[in-house]
């Protein structure tokens, strides 16, 4: 099935946290960080920024941990979502998630990323493409291409063999 996934490229992240603000705003209509489904960790002494959100795992540990089957996969987007009608707010999923992607919002309820039904606000807010929403078939291609290009520039043309076989 063709669907899209969120991709994060830390080399392009400027640490502006607009993704966090955008997420919080589309979910609550106000600006803040508490109800954002995405987080930015900043190391301002080295300029390192890491964005963490939900990877929508498959199989998803949160889904397995849920005792009342409140967590399900949206067939349209592939997103792992919470059915708030069924959710009893036991927080088992919070502890089950290996990435801390499920949190407790300002209303005391368990919240998580739902990929904004296929049009994530965080991606729209990201200026330099650190966060992208990519076709699952394209994922990794640009990283592989980047690596291929570094290999290519390392190759000395005079030492190239006819077969092109070289150790990776």
């Amino acid at each position: 099935m063709a669907y899209k996934v969120l991709v994060f490229d830390s080399s392009k992240c400027t640490g502006c946290e607009l993704c966090v603000l955008a997420c919080n705003y589309v979910k609550t209509g106000v600006f803040g960080t508490r109800d954002a489904r995405i987080r930015v960790f900043s190391w301002r002494d080295t300029g390192d920024f890491i964005v963490l959100g939900c990877y929508h795992c498959d199989p998803a540990p949160c889904m397995e941990a849920c005792g009342v089957d409140a967590i399900y996969r949206d067939p349209k987007t592939g997103a792992v979502k919470i059915n708030t009608d069924k959710c009893i707010n036991c927080k088992a999923c919070v502890y089950a998630c290996p990435y801390g992607a499920i949190t407790i919002g300002s209303n005391g309820k368990v919240i998580k990323c739902d990929l904004c039904d296929g049009d994530p606000a965080c991606v729209k807010a990201c200026q330099y493409g650190a966060l992208r929403f990519e076709e699952v078939s394209k994922v990794g291609v640009d990283f592989a291409l980047q690596y291929a290009q570094t290999l290519k520039t390392k190759t000395d043309i005079s030492k190239r063999t006819w077969s092109g076989i070289r150790p990776v």
Binding site: S11, T14, G15, C16, E17, L18, L21, T46, G47, F49, A125, Q127, Y128
Partner: peptide, 17 residues
Amino acid sequence: RVKRAACRQCPIGCHNW
């Protein structure tokens, strides 16, 4: 330059690392 960075809530990111 190894990195571009930004102040919070700024899409420009004028800082050069």
